[in-house]
């Protein structure tokens, strides 16, 4: 390692910075302004009302080849149970702070709370994970998890083959800029737009290479 002179482990810090400064030269000139004329919100033509935003989200999630259903708050427990039953999930993992009501209707399903942390082998053996999300984006059909309430650590929604995600209608924003604004980059973020997919062989789409093969979204409207 050619870390001559610099602090241990920093490698060629001084050298790289010196090269950058030399490349840019002394007189760098005025910084041109950065124009930001793109849309921050959906236009009225795209979605004029709150209902339009929800409809757009639903359409785009489906486009991303995830299953999506709208349920009312008091149907949620039943909908979660039905979805898991539909995928024959017997053993699931959930964040320790998942609202109790979401799992109230489970029948014949063993739910492991991730507290203390479930070991990785167990995580690989369970059939599904059920979580909430932090934000969802209508325009792209995306759910974003930030490890906050009802979401758990990242591995929960990565290792099991099936991810069931509950989205509250008020978490859905229209555009990517709105989502970026709401999110805290200090937290580990995962933006999910459909199941794991590859085009690695002959450009043929195959789902479920490493991440979850199935993604299902339940939109809760109050």
């Amino acid at each position: 390692m050619t870390s001559a002179g610099g602090p241990v482990g920093a490698g060629s810090r001084a050298e790289v910075l010196r090269r950058v400064r030399e490349a840019l030269g002394g007189a760098r000139g005025p910084r041109p302004p950065v124009p930001r004329r793109y849309a921050r919100r959906l236009t009225d033509a795209e979605a004029g009302t709150r209902a339009d935003v929800l409809a757009l989200f639903t359409e785009r999630v489906a486009d991303n080849r995830a299953a999506v259903r709208h349920v009312s708050a008091d149907e949620l427990g039943t909908a979660v149970a039905a979805a898991l039953w539909g995928r024959e999930a017997r053993q699931i993992v959930v964040p320790a702070d998942l609202p109790f009501g979401w799992l109230a209707e489970l029948d014949g399903v063993r739910a492991l709370a991730d507290a203390p942390a479930v070991d990785i082998g167990t995580l690989a053996a369970v059939d599904a994970a059920v979580t909430g999300c932090a934000v969802a984006v209508a325009q792209t059909g995306t759910i974003v998890l930030d490890g906050g309430r009802a979401q758990g650590r990242r591995a929960l929604t990565l290792v099991p083959g099936y991810h069931l995600c509950v989205v509250h209608a008020d978490q859905i924003v229209g555009t990517v800029p709105e989502a970026v604004e709401r999110l805290d980059p200090a937290r580990p973020l995962t933006w999910i737009s459909g199941p794991s997919a590859t085009h690695g062989i002959e450009m043929v789409r195959v789902e479920g290479v490493h991440g979850p093969r199935h993604l299902e979204v339940l939109v809760v409207e109050d």
């Binding site: 990242r154 591995a155 580990p188 973020l189 737009s193 085009h199 991440g211």
Partner: peptide, 25 residues
């Protein structure tokens, strides 16, 4: 990036992290 690389509205996964997070990763 997603639209011009794969033609997706959003790439299936976007992951971001800042340093380390205790208990996660």
């Amino acid at each position: 990036l997603p639209r011009s690389s794969s033609g997706d509205r959003m790439t299936p996964y976007v992951a971001s992290w800042s340093g380390v997070t205790p208990g996660d990763g």
